[in-house]
Simulated scan of single mutants.
Amino acid sequence: MKALLLSAALALPLAAPVSASASLGGTPVTAETLVDRAEMIRIADAIDAAVDAKDWPVARSFFADEIMVDFTSLIGGDPATIPADALIAGWAGNLTDEKTSFHLRGNHRIGFDGADRAVMQSHGYAWNRMDRGAAPENGGDPLWEVWGSYTHVFERSEAGWKVTAMTFTAMAQRGNSFVRDTPGS
């Protein structure tokens, strides 16, 4: 079961689907899992808030030291295991003070794989604005936005729940790819 959940978390479009309960409704809420569920949702939402606030140390605090990431639906390439510090450095390099972002997440569904591991799926929306994108030579539009789904794998550590894998699968995007692809100055 662990292999199936991790596989689904890393390559949703290509892997066998997570069980129907985990992917559609999660596992039932019980007194034993209520606090853990609330903490995982808080962490996923807090990652978005920290990224939008450009508070990189807070964003980093929610991840294990190494993380499997898959953003291939947006940027191509292959899923990879990287240091969490590298993930945060990449986000910080793209989302500088010149670029404003807004992330929104909802429809959280959590499936547990034992007491210390869980997979959360959620819907996500991200909006980026960079005034330089409005220049005709840069595409003429200061906005870029994307809708999709996230899969976060959580593992309990001595420091609490940490994200060990993160996949974003884009469903639709619109706007100026210059804004998405160009780091702010």
Rank of each mutant, 00 (worst) to 15 (best):
P57V: 12
P57D: 09
P57R: 14
A59D: 05
A59G: 03
F62Y: 15
A64M: 04
E66W: 10
I67T: 12
D70N: 15
D70A: 07
D70W: 04
F71K: 06
S73L: 06
L74H: 05
I75F: 15
D78E: 15
T81I: 11
D85G: 10
A86I: 08
I88N: 01
I88W: 01
I88H: 07
I88E: 00
G93W: 08
G93I: 03
G93R: 03
L95D: 11
T96W: 01
D97V: 05
D97P: 01
E98L: 00
S101V: 02
G106A: 06
G106N: 13
N107Q: 13
N107V: 10
H108C: 13
H108K: 03
R109P: 02
I110N: 00
G111S: 07
G114Y: 02
G114N: 04
G114D: 06
R117P: 01
R117N: 00
A118C: 09
A118M: 04
A118K: 02
M120G: 00
Q121L: 15
S122C: 14
A126Q: 02
N128I: 03
N128S: 12
R129V: 13
D131F: 05
G133N: 01
A134V: 09
A134G: 09
A135W: 05
P136F: 08
E137T: 09
G140V: 06
